[in-house]
Design a protein around this nucleic acid. Sequence first.
DNA 1: ACGCTCATCTGCAACTCATGCGAACAACCA
DNA 2: TGGTTGTTCGCATGAGTTGCAGATGAGCGT
Lengths: 159, 159
Amino acid sequence: MRSPSELTTVFRSQGMKLTPQRQLLFRLLHGNITHPSADALYLLASAHMPGISLRTVYQTLNDLASMGELQQLALGTGSARFDPNIGAHHHTICQRCGEVRDVYLTGDMPAYVQDLAGFVVDSAAVVLHGTCAQCRAGESTAKSDNRRNNVVYNKENST
Amino acid sequence: MRSPSELTTVFRSQGMKLTPQRQLLFRLLHGNITHPSADALYLLASAHMPGISLRTVYQTLNDLASMGELQQLALGTGSARFDPNIGAHHHTICQRCGEVRDVYLTGDMPAYVQDLAGFVVDSAAVVLHGTCAQCRAGESTAKSDNRRNNVVYNKENST
DNA sequence: ACGCTCATCTGCAACTCATGCGAACAACCA
DNA sequence: TGGTTGTTCGCATGAGTTGCAGATGAGCGT
């Protein structure tokens, strides 16, 4: 998403008001790479502005998301995660600790799809499930050997 | 997932009982390509067995999923979807009607990932968002031209 | 066939995440 | 400074899912 000062301009130009709550959330989200949930952001915001409402956090996140300043992620972890990085990228999610990180795919995309049956693709989301380095360090390293390393997938197709 | 008769054997061998409710759900799920939600499956099951409980449907779906017979999909559409196809495949989801379909990626995977920072990938999920043929047929075809066709993504990387 | 045992089913309550609503509030402009 | 109007806040509500406990019935031994 854009910087807090840029967002100030954008919001004003659309007849939206620049409240202290919004300014705080802009600052807390800008450059934030933790993919916070609404609740996590609420806790963080509460530390800076006691009394701020969870409802306001949801409202602002939805506003930013519908303006295209935030990406809303449904990773199946219970609550939605928000990502101020709106460039083309994808995510890893640790099955042990739940941490979400941005990743960038390289290599020769595009990949083609068999039999789209007239479906027109707008966007693609890739989620890599696995175990992060910190969590692996805290376990016996033996069983991690039978896992695919650094590879997204080998051959697809089966049933 | 395996056939209803195979599941019968598996369940019995694990000390689990073969109730009429489970047998019905096995039949309704086997070969089902509609990616039903728990509620959708409940409605379908109710037509065959009035009085079956939604709670039982959830229970059985969770059992099958934890046994690896079902894939549980979190597509951000409110409720979880269940897919008896547990082979390596991915999904399209129509932003208009919500329909989920299986797709198979071709071309020379693997795609490599920049800077996994020690993260070990277990599995990858690709979700293609877009518009299905039926929904496109029901709209003016003009605006669909500026969408990418049949391409998962072009170049990745940005911020 | 019968009865026993324990897994399962069912209905309801509870829980999580998210949104609708309306009154109080405050940012912005004249 | 005062008025307008978008915003905030707290509560109620809604969707989706799970916990719980009593009733039920599948599977086993006899």
